[in-house]
């Protein structure tokens, strides 16, 4: 009951946030220099024709009327039209959002699978070779730009060695996507028992997910290491050692469980960062997600996709933060009391 109330209160607080996001995304796009009508009308357009295109696109209206239309459209599920694809932005998003989500989730899982053990190992073997290697790998991941890491992976694994598939999106050529249930190809292939698409989508996902995971693994590992070090020195761990509990149980049971609390917060931030920041990786791997779409839209000041991208990322942040707060309640009983 208390938890339900908590969730409800949190959801209510989301409304003003989202309102603020619509304002910011609209005005930022509005303030961007450039005239999208000119891009659409083409070089041969006469001034009269250009004015006509502007009228069609509603660009001749005052700013607040345009904002009103935008928000009104949002309520009707109308996000405008994309100039690049000629389709409603909502349709483009429905198609592309699962691609971004799948990539983000895969890289997050990969980052946790590598980052957490790496952090634990670094803490347990503090100042040994393992710790140093962990640090170097972590720093390299943060320091190397993702487009570069991505290209390096493609160059070595696809071009030179030939074990990775061509960086051509989510599925090998000629395969049809699995029946859409979640929109995540890996999950849908599993659910429908389509092993060929499962295999292919896992293969396509491997390099972009590894590229992204590489860039965010370090903060996870560092955070785990720092909290683990602190906890390993605390009294109850000493007591656990003294009681002769098995090493595994002390490290992975008692210590790690408590060390994960701040890590959950980090993961929330990392997830948001991945959602918004994978535009580059999407471009490098021809991954048909929303990041790649928004970058193209920026060049032509295609407002529908840009505004929707900002809005979607903001909504995702809000949802993830909510989940993180709820997870907190699960991981850390103290938050439930307060």
């Amino acid at each position: 009951m208390a938890l339900a109330l908590y969730v409800l209160r949190r959801l209510m607080s989301v409304i003003p946030t989202l309102f603020g996001v619509t304002l910011i995304s609209f005005f930022l796009t509005y303030m961007l220099p450039g005239n999208p009508a000119q891009v659409k009308a083409g070089p041969l357009a006469t001034p009269e024709y250009l004015a006509e295109v502007e009228r069609q696109m509603g660009l001749d209206q005052p700013m607040w009327v345009q904002y009103g239309r935008y928000v009104g459209g949002l309520f009707r599920g109308d996000l405008g039209e994309s100039a690049a694809t000629g389709r409603p932005v909502l349709q483009d998003f429905t198609q592309r959002l699962p691609a971004t989500l799948e990539l983000t989730l895969a890289s997050l899982i990969l980052a946790i699978l590598i980052g957490v053990p790496l952090g634990v190992l670094s803490a347990v073997h503090r100042d040994t070779a393992i710790d140093h290697v962990g640090r170097i790998v972590g720093v390299a991941g943060v320091a190397m730009p993702t487009f570069w890491t991505g290209l390096l992976f493609i160059y070595v694994l696809f071009y030179l060695i030939g074990i990775a598939p061509a960086p051509l999106g989510r599925l090998a050529s000629g395969l049809t996507p699995p029946t859409a249930i979640t929109g995540l190809y890996v999950v849908d292939s599993l659910l429908t028992g389509n092993w060929r698409t499962l295999w292919s989508s896992l293969g396509q996902l491997a390099l972009p997910a590894a590229t992204l995971a590489f860039s965010v693994m370090a903060p996870v590992a560092r955070m785990v290491r720092a909290t683990m070090l602190e906890i390993l020195q605390s009294d109850y761990i000493t007591a656990a050692w003294a009681a002769g509990l098995p090493r595994r149980r002390v490290i992975y049971g008692d210590a790690l469980r408590n060390a994960l609390i701040p890590v959950v917060t980090t993961l929330g931030v990392v997830f948001g960062f991945l959602m918004a920041g994978n535009a580059v990786v999407e471009t490098v791997f021809a991954w048909p997600g929303i990041g790649n779409y928004a970058v193209t839209a920026l060049m032509t000041k295609d407002s529908g996709p840009i505004q929707s991208f900002v809005l979607f990322v903001a909504v995702m942040y809000v949802i993830v933060n909510l989940i993180v707060d709820l997870l907190y309640a699960v991981v850390d009983p103290r938050t439930r009391l307060s």
Binding site: P33, G34, N35, M299, T300, K301
Partner: peptide, 9 residues
């Protein structure tokens, strides 16, 4: 400049 800006300017 981006395409949109370049054309407008």
């Amino acid at each position: 400049e981006t395409d949109a800006t370049f054309r407008q300017v």
